[in-house]
Design a protein around this nucleic acid. Structure first.
Length: 958
RNA sequence: GCCCCCGUAGCCCAACUGGCAGCAGGCAAUGGCCUCAAAAACCAUACAGUGUGGGUUCGAAUCCCACCGGGGGCACCA
């Protein structure tokens, strides 16, 4: 292609032959997409490794790493909602490329996971085949949008070259432990060394050398960041797999599929994310993220400070966690979770004397009552649990550590085994839940914080706010602390000091966050690089064996069960690959038979580290060369987190993906593999594109594109009235619009301009196909201003623009640059339209180059194909516009010659004055006061106050 | 129940964070120009006083309080 090549138009009888029509747009776009590919326009140089290009790197400026949350390649393909973020990052990346930045931008695929497997089950095709077909489809759709991705850096999490490193990182987790002193992960060998040298005592105190191999391994295994644990997990028979807490909804169902989830004790892989609770919390402060996302993560981690307190019981100490140790004097009973291990030891043969009948639940003995209650509680859904306070007395008492009072111990399902110690001291006076329970079981209530005067004490309720302590103690007690009069915070501190001094407890911090359940009983996931030996203990496979590839299976279906069958047990599909499961290996002790782990990793695994692969996607020696990691992700200033410079994706990943990725990144940081503390420095959540859907009189959805708006708010489909709904875009709602259709009808550039001009990136908005034409007309007008529609020749002339147009041009450049930097593409486009409208007025005899050229340059990030074409055909340049410098405004021209000030008198605008732009405040004031109308209104009086807001307005108070 | 975000022309959105609400922009509407007619393109026009009610201020879409409407998150986490 040369600059002489005129772009041929389709030329019908009615349309001028070189008009910017959809056909022409499509031709231009396809041509430039090929050109970029052939000329490797968007290949980004690395400092080292296979993608290194020192010469290119020298030419480019400071690095910029932009990333999208990569898609799951579903069979349905993209609809117009998906590319919103991709286009935004592309516009930003292209803009910064024109500012000389070395921009890394690419797109991978999050391709493991349930949908491919479920689709595979329906069709009988192998998930791999389906996945790679879908990826090819996505790539075609994405290419058509003209995204400036480096094609060499695309990957899928299902590529063995990729998941090899997912497995490698898992081995690092397995071979590391968290050192609370150093507050970081360390290699497991260093822990073994501490035990071997005696620096660290073994759990039962025996010397390390006296322990046999299996004992030693068990001790070490308990410290690993990836560990096998028999723990209560979320078993979902309907899906045939266990799920992470994060994948279970509040009402106890699976997020995917909405099947019931049961708690079941199973042996599963866990990742010790809780060790990182504090750092995951603290380092949020280093991140430029939406406050809402930070808040959600803080809530999810759920750090609370308080104390452990031990209560003596006949079966030994009962340990509770409380955030309100100051209310200990108000503890009138105890509650443990139904499954608390101490309960069985506490239960006496018979009910004690003198208890209230309601405590027994009507059972003859504590044993029966507890057994019955446990059964009842297990059968209840979480929602049912919330409606009423239920429980039963276990028949035993605890001793209050200060007063020595005997207080009854209950089991109740409002106390969760999985939080704190699974037991609480109940303080009804200061806790609403305890108050409700106390009312049901007729238990004493003691207020230990004085409620304020406007608190309705008579209508009775717990008071949870601040105030002076009372009844603490109610009557003097021997050596108990006197908290009376202290505010909550002071009282907490005094009580903790007392508990510590008297050996009744200690200061404590707990988290809501729990360790990450990391096994799934599915086929389409990463296999674990783990085998089990004759002791049933896990053994890491050596790195050289990676990747451990998925075995071929005749039947990769998971074994699912009746969704309600809580007694079922998971049967991973991989366990059926018997040839694969049984394996003879020489792992250092000669050839032995091992059994492979038949679980697979959850589909969060690949996305937990993929930001580290874009910088070095073809590296076969490491997951990422340290030099490439430091260049693309490393912090550039002391105290910075490092990480991706701009990460754009949906709000739905606020907790799961973003927390997991932060965790893995921090582990790699601790072990010295990366220099960045955080994976993603700046995060933006793009809004959703929503769509109208229409239902007929029977409530069935009708094709949205065939619906006609008869009058405002009145819609019909084939003559019959239909009702409009508003929601997500989807097949079932018959309202899907695809980018392919839009590209076909208007071209990719129009689609890009439209998506970016609909509103700010963060805001959700409705899709309206008929409005797209506005963006099309804009590009058409730009084209017409620069290219003769009848000859295809340039209309650009070298005559200078008039002064007014020039000033407008520079104001627009100034504003567009600011808008692009802050990703406000909607306002940037509006300014360009304004400039182009001006150009339309003055360009009757050709478009002045001094306006046309900056306009094309400013347009280039958003509508890159037409910009390339105009850059070449209309403006006569030989090379791509992708690296041409983005225009810079002349500050003198931005200012304008004069400023018009509105003049307010007593809050009302009475007149306007025009003063030179460089007039000082006194001159502006003088000009305002002497203005005819103002002088008339003042009528000789002295104004009480004159406010001059430089550049804005003048306010006079009389 | 608790927490967070958002309410500006018929619709999507601007308004440089307290300073003239729209010659920011677009869709739709109306009129015009073309045309035998229409479409496309082009030109022009009108449309809200900022969800409601108070408050602070010389001045509020913007800050504060209450309420209404929409969206999202959390929900026995001791």
């Amino acid at each position: 292609m040369t600059s002489e090549t005129v772009t041929p138009g389709p030329g019908t009888t009615d349309t001028p032959p070189y008009r910017y029509t959809a056909e022409l747009a499509n031709q231009i776009e396809a041509r430039w997409q090929d050109w970029w590919e052939q000329n490797e326009t968007f290949h980004t140089p690395n400092p080292v490794g296979p993608l290194a290009d020192p010469e290119k790197l020298r030419q480019r400026g400071e690095k910029l790493f932009v990333q999208d949350m990569f898609p799951y390649p579903s069979g349905a393909g993209l609809h117009v909602g998906h590319p919103l973020g991709y286009i935004a990052t592309d516009c930003y990346g292209r803009f910064q490329r024109m500012n000389g930045r070395n921009v890394l931008h690419a797109m991978g695929f999050d391709a493991f996971g349930l949908p491919a497997e479920q689709y595979a089950i329906q069709t009988g095709e192998h998930p791999r085949k389906i996945t790679y077909e879908n990826i090819a489809k996505f790539k075609r759709q994405l290419r058509r949008l003209g995204l400036a991705h480096d094609p060499r850096r695309s990957f899928a999490t299902t590529d063995p070259d990729f998941y090899r490193w997912t497995q490698w990182i898992f081995l690092k987790l397995f071979n590391s432990w968290y050192d609370p002193q150093a507050q970081k992960a360390r290699p497991i060998e260093e822990l073994i060394e501490e035990y071997a040298s005696g620096q660290r005592a073994t759990p039962d105190g025996r010397p390390w050398e006296e322990l046999d191999e299996v004992e030693r391994r068990r001790i070490i295994n308990d410290h690993r960041l990836a560990y096998v644990s028999e723990a209560p997990v979320n078993w979902c028979p309907g899906l045939g797999t266990v799920l992470a807490n994060e994948e279970v909804t509040a009402d106890g169902r699976s997020e995917r599929g909405n099947f019931p989830v049961f708690t079941k004790k199973l042996t599963q892989w866990m990742l010790r994310i809780t060790a990182y609770g504090d750092r995951l919390l603290e380092d949020l402060d280093l991140l430029d993220w939406p406050e809402a996302v930070k808040t959600m993560q803080r809530n999810w981690i759920g750090r609370s400070e308080g104390a452990y307190i031990n209560f003596a019981t006949p079966a030994g100490p009962l340990r509770v966690f409380t955030t309100r140790p100051d209310t200990l004097y108000g503890a009138t009973y105890m509650v443990t979770a139904p499954e608390h291990p101490l309960v069985d030891k506490l239960i006496p043969e018979a009910w004690p004397e003198g208890i209230k009948p309601i405590w027994t639940g009507g059972y003859a003995s504590p044993k029966e009552a507890v057994a019955a209650y446990r059964k009842q509680a297990a059968a209840k859904s979480d929602v049912e649990r919330q409606t009423d306070k239920t429980g039963v007395f276990v028949g035993a008492y605890a001793t209050h550590p200060i007063t020595g009072a005997q207080i009854p111990i209950f089991i109740a399902d409002y106390v969760l085994m999985s939080y704190g110690t699974g037991a609480i001291m109940a303080v009804p006076g200061q806790d609403e839940r305890d108050w409700e329970f106390a009312e049901v079981f007729d238990l004493p209530i003691v207020r230990t914080v004085q409620p304020p005067e406007d608190f309705d004490v008579d209508n009775g309720k717990a008071y949870t706010g601040d105030g002076p302590a009372i009844n603490s103690p109610a009557t003097p007690v021997e050596n108990g602390p006197d908290l009376n009069g202290l505010k909550v915070e002071e009282a907490k501190k005094a009580m903790i000091d007392w508990l510590v001094a008297n050996g009744h407890g200690e200061r404590a911090v707990t988290y809501r966050l729990r360790d990450w359940l990391f096994s799934r009983q599915r086929y389409w996931g990463e296999p674990f690089p783990i085998v089990y030996d004759e002791h049933g203990l896990p053994v890491a496979l050596p790195e050289e064996m990676l990747p451990i590839e998925l075995p071929e299976l005749e039947d990769f279906r998971p074994k699912t069960f009746d969704p309600e069958d809580s007694e079922s047990n998971p049967e991973p599909p991989l366990s059926r690959a018997t040839d694969w499961v049984e394996v003879t290996l020489d792992l250092g002790d000669g050839p032995k038979t091992y059994r492979r782990d038949t679980n697979t990793m959850p589909n969060w695994a690949g996305s937990s580290w993929y930001e580290l692969r874009y910088p070095d996607p073809t590296n076969s020696e490491r997951f990422c060369d340290p030099a490439n990691e430091a260049y693309w992700l490393g912090p550039r200033k002391e105290g910075e987190s490092g990480g991706v410079d701009l990460y754009v994706g949906g709000m739905e990943h606020a907790v799961l993906h973003l927390l997991y990725a932060r965790f893995w990144h921090k582990v790699l940081y601790d072990l010295g593999y990366v220099t960045s503390k955080e994976p993603f420095h700046k995060l933006i959540n793009q809004g959703y594109i929503q769509a109208y859907a229409y239902t007929d009189s029977r409530g069935a959805y009708v094709p949205a594109e065939e619906v006609v708006e008869e009058a405002p708010g009145v819609y019909t489909w084939k003559g019959q009235p239909v009702k409009r709904e508003y929601g997500k875009m989807g097949k079932s709602l018959k309202n899907v619009v695809t980018p392919d259709e839009m590209c076909q009808t208007y071209g990719a550039d129009t689609f890009r301009v439209y998506e970016m001009s609909m509103g700010p990136l963060e805001v959700s908005r409705p899709w309206e196909t008929r409005a797209v034409v506005g963006s099309f007309r804009f590009l058409q007008r730009v084209w017409r201003n620069l290219v003769d529609e009848y000859t295809g020749k340039s209309r650009v002339v070298d005559t200078p623009a008039d002064e007014e147009t020039r000033r407008l041009l520079h104001r627009v450049i100034d504003a567009v640059r600011r808008d692009m930097e802050t990703l406000r593409f909607n306002t940037a486009i509006a300014k360009m339209i304004e400039l182009n409208n001006r150009l339309t007025q003055i360009a009757t005899d050709g478009a002045p180059r001094e306006v046309a050229e900056p306009l094309v340059l400013m347009l280039a990030p958003i509508a890159p194909h037409i910009a390339e074409e105009l850059w070449r055909v209309a403006l006569g340049h030989e090379d791509t516009v992708a690296y041409a410098p983005f225009p810079v405004a002349d500050p003198e021209l931005v200012k304008g010659e004069s400023v018009t000030y509105p003049v307010q008198v007593n809050g009302k605008v009475r007149t306007r004055i025009e003063v030179p732009a460089d007039a000082d405040e006194a001159a502006v004031r003088q000009a305002a006061l002497t203005e005819e109308k103002v002088a008339a209104l003042l009528d000789g009086r002295e104004p009480r106050k004159v406010i001059v807001v430089p550049g804005r307005m003048i306010s006079i108070v009389v």
